[in-house]
Amino acid sequence: MNNKILNELKDHQETLQCVIDTLGDDIATACEMITSTIKNGSKVLLAGNGGSAADAQHIAAELTGRYVKDRQPLPGIALTVDTSALTSIANDYGYEHVFSRQLEAFARPGDLFIGISTSGNSPGILAAFESAKKLEVKTLGLSGRNGGKMNGLCDLNIIVPSSITARIQEMHILIGHILCTAVDDLFD
Rank of each mutant, 00 (worst) to 15 (best):
C31H: 01
E32L: 06
E32D: 15
M33G: 05
M33E: 00
T35N: 02
S36Q: 13
T37Y: 04
K39F: 04
K39T: 11
G41C: 10
G41H: 08
G41K: 00
S42Q: 12
V44I: 15
L45E: 07
L45V: 03
L46I: 12
G48C: 15
G48S: 13
G50S: 03
G51Y: 05
A54R: 01
Q57R: 03
Q57T: 13
I59H: 06
A61G: 15
A61I: 03
G65E: 11
Y67N: 15
V68G: 09
V68A: 14
D70R: 14
P73M: 09
P73H: 10
L74E: 03
P75Q: 07
P75E: 03
I77T: 00
I77D: 00
I77A: 02
A78F: 06
L79N: 08
V81C: 10
D82L: 06
D82A: 13
T83M: 15
T83S: 11
S84Y: 12
L86N: 07
L86Q: 09
T87K: 12
S88L: 13
N91H: 15
E96G: 07
E96R: 08
F99Y: 13
S100L: 00
Q102S: 02
Q102Y: 02
L103I: 03
L103Q: 02
A107P: 06
A107N: 03
R108K: 13
P109C: 10
P109G: 05
P109A: 02
L112N: 04
L112D: 00
I114W: 01
S117H: 01
S117T: 11
S117I: 01
G120I: 00
N121M: 00
P123H: 06
L126C: 09
A127V: 08
A127S: 14
S131D: 09
S131N: 10
A132C: 02
A132E: 04
K134S: 14
E136H: 08
E136K: 12
V137K: 03
K138F: 11
T139L: 06
L140F: 13
L140Q: 13
L140T: 08
L142P: 11
L142M: 12
L142A: 11
G144F: 04
R145C: 13
N146G: 14
G147K: 08
G148W: 01
G148S: 07
M150V: 10
G152Q: 08
L153T: 14
D155T: 11
D155A: 05
L156T: 15
L156G: 09
I158G: 08
I158D: 06
P161H: 02
P161D: 02
S162D: 06
